[in-house]
């Protein structure tokens, strides 16, 4: 029941996208998200869609997994669409009661929906094809220059990788504790809001305790291996750009140019 969250879950397979340097994927994801907000016409979105479809195809991750991640934002999506649909002023197409649908509203709502869907899918591709460790390594390297202005880049990325690493573990733990309490007659579903919130206590207390216990164990294990932050720490697999990474940057640049020209300037 709790396994439906794709964000932050790696899909194991071998593909060009999987093998790309995480820095490329991070940069590409950010650029892709920006591109979604630059373009504001149909051709732009067609290009963005085709680009995404190509990446998904190359990544060899079943589309089903991307769609599963979508469920989480379904609610947000519906709200965004409804607000844009009804609250955009402009040329009125239909109206009933106090609500009116305008031509601009339909256009905006449609674009908003496409943007959100592409945005989530685009970032899902990144998390599905990159292991959390790789991802934070990439981030650390990309943000490296910020160390000069005393931003604790290494610590931040270490925290992120630990957090990501623990998501599936804690989900599993939640599932287990939930089952154990259901076996003791707990009821997580029925009742009003207050009763429901109260019924979460037997779940949350053990979960927090287990999170702290795990944190403690991990800290101990890190200390036992003489971990002391990023200073002078070397990597077993340092990130080095390969030919395919440079190619990917080229493709990304091409896509961005295309987006700006066709999606913004031309029409």
């Amino acid at each position: 029941m709790l396994r439906d969250i794709t964000l932050g879950q790696y899909y194991q397979t071998d593909s060009v996208i999987h093998r790309l340097d995480p820095r490329v994927k991070l940069t590409a994801t950010i650029c892709y998200i920006i591109s979604l907000f630059i373009v504001d016409n149909v051709i732009g979105y067609i290009i963005a869609g085709l680009f995404l479809a190509m990446i998904i195809k190359l990544s060899r991750v079943p589309v089903k997994f991307m769609i599963r991640g979508m469920k989480a934002i379904l609610f947000l999506l519906i709200i965004a669409v409804i607000f844009n649909l009804f609250l955009t002023p402009g040329e009125v197409l239909f109206s009933f009661w106090k609500l009116q649908i305008t031509k601009e509203g339909i256009r905006l709502a449609g674009f908003m929906a496409i943007r959100l869907v592409f945005l989530i899918m685009g970032s899902s591709v990144m998390t599905l094809t990159t292991t959390p460790n790789n991802l934070t390594d990439g981030m650390e390297k990309l943000l490296g220059p910020l160390k000069r202005i005393r931003v604790p880049v290494h610590e931040i990325s270490m925290m992120m990788s630990i957090a990501l690493r623990f998501i599936p573990i804690l989900l599993e733990e939640t599932d287990k504790i939930m089952k154990a309490q259901i076996a003791r007659g707990a009821d997580f579903e029925s009742g009003n809001l207050i009763k429901k919130a109260k019924s979460l206590v037997p779940l949350l207390v053990p979960l927090f305790i287990s999170a702290f216990r795990r944190a403690n164990d991990l800290a101990m294990a890190m200390e036992a291996r003489c971990y002391r932050g990023g200073e002078h720490r070397t990597k077993m697999k340092p990130l080095i750009y390969q030919k395919r990474d440079r190619l990917a940057y080229g493709a990304l640049a091409g896509y961005l140019v295309l987006c700006v020209i066709l999606g913004k300037i031309l029409l």
Binding site: K176, I177, Q181, R184, P206
Partner: peptide, 12 residues
């Protein structure tokens, strides 16, 4: 009655 593995983790 089902007692899970490491049942002490469910105490609250």
């Amino acid at each position: 009655g089902l007692v899970f593995q490491y049942p002490e983790h469910q105490l609250f």
